[in-house]
Design a protein around this nucleic acid. Structure first.
Lengths: 260, 260
DNA sequence: TCCAGAAATAAATCATATTTATATTGACTT
DNA sequence: AAGTCAATATAAATATGATTTATTTCTGGA
């Protein structure tokens, strides 16, 4: 019996989780649990089934389950107390910036306010980060930004996958170059926002040209060490991203199956 | 032998962790491990001692250690792979917003850029949050903000502890009222910043008056549903907080022992 | 020199036992 | 009848040993 462990993890409905990528038991289980909570099947302050039930339900050992619960507790999603059981904490405490949580949110739990929060935050943060980057970026960080830009140009319309990766890399590189660790915490959220927009929008090929020119403006301003120019260029860039996204959301809500 | 478990957890130096508050084995161990990594004793990409050594070092079972490691992995601090051991991830991946990590950073690992990043982020985020709150806050959220303000007034200079709590509550309530989940993720960082400033500054009693009036401006603007006024009032409030903090940092760096 | 396969290693998982904290219950006091 | 306190039951927390799995490294042969 080789490598059955992954497929052995069951969803709540009893169907095997199967190969969403080759994932360890732990990762698969984590996704299940996070999904369970995020989906709202167990509302705030409700208590989850006890260990015994969950282990049976998912077909994993108590150790694995408990370690996964530690993770959930690290995310501020649940709190275990003896005798009281494991209870779901209020959403205010959740760490939405965690990759797994974001992943689940985007696939099942995202409503329009979720996306608009994300866009608002980008609109606020990224221009500030770009300005800081223009002031502080060192040679290595400048190179990373330039590299990402060149990858975008090269991928232009030909390869959507490569384009997405480069776009993502461009924005994270700038936030990293800001040198502010708080801004950096948003990298994952920004990436999630971009991934979502990639899913939602079918970018017309002529808008690629426009996007490249916007990105170039940002890059040049940072290179030239002009914080204000960088701030404005980034603000402009995000504005158009916001436009595309809200448009896509409007369409998606007309035909909701596109989101999932 | 009752309740020895807590004191049994050892620090790396072999000294018992003792009573830093009545903490479970798990919490004590977590602090130790996070401190181990944050302190830089194990630099990026280095691998930690294996399970056996660590369990012996800390005097805890493998299960406890592994669950703690799950937490660290949730924080993006380490990554365990079979055979390769558990390695420390680059700092870019760490979740600094986690309460434990912030706590450790503030007690051992904080340099000046750490604080200034925090202040910059507040200067950027809180005015935006205040403006949003002025637009969207519901009755309950308004009440929470008002309540925190009244607590501040009542505590005024008399009770430093109560003042701190109320101040903290005021800012978190506003960020919560913004309705933006991304902003909300900062609550913990903002709280950390405030706690740090409480530690660093010995506020003169006359500046309490000033602080109260600034806070009142923010509250009134939000009550009156005036986003721009709220934004500016908050910007002003944070500016003075920034001033106090940089001043305190300047003094602290003159006599470094004050930080620890 | 290079590759396939064996061995070794450390984490991942499992299973079970023991300990500890707390909510509930019921007895006892007033 | 109300309130206090102790016994009980329950479920989580912790411990420990065994097993499995993945990966690196070593080794022998081509």
């Amino acid at each position: 019996m080789k490598n059955l462990s992954i497929t052995r993890v069951l969803t709540e409905q009893g169907a095997p989780i199967a190969q969403r990528g080759k994932r360890s038991v732990r990762e698969a289980l984590l996704h299940c649990l996070v999904e369970m909570v995020v989906s709202g099947r167990f509302p705030e302050n409700s208590t989850l089934p006890n260990e015994a039930e969950l282990t049976e339900q998912f077909g994993v050992s108590r150790t694995s389950l408990r370690e996964a619960m530690q993770y959930l507790s690290a995310l501020g999603m649940v709190r275990s107390r003896t005798r009281a059981g494991t209870t779901v904490l209020p959403k205010e405490n959740w760490n939405y910036l965690d990759p797994i949580v974001l992943d689940v949110m985007l696939s099942v739990g995202a409503d329009e306010t979720f996306y608009s929060s994300l866009i608002d935050a980008r609109q606020l943060l990224e221009p500030a980060a770009a300005a800081e980057a223009a002031t502080k970026a060192n040679a290595r960080q400048l190179y990373q930004i330039s590299k990402a830009f060149e990858d975008m140009v090269e991928a232009n319309s030909r390869d959507t996958e490569a384009w997405s990766r480069a776009d993502l890399e461009f924005h994270t590189a700038i936030v990293n170059a800001s040198g502010n660790w708080v801004y950096r915490q948003f990298a994952s959220a920004i990436q999630a926002a971009l991934l979502a927009s990639f899913r939602l929008t079918n970018r017309a090929s002529q808008s690629h040209e426009q996007a490249i020119s916007s990105h170039q403006d940002v890059l040049e301003a940072i290179r030239m060490r002009q914080p204000e120019a960088a701030r404005q260029a980034m603000a402009h860039l995000i504005s158009s991203a916001r436009g595309e996204m809200t448009e896509a959301l409007r369409q998606a809500s007309a035909s909701p199956h596109l989101i999932a």
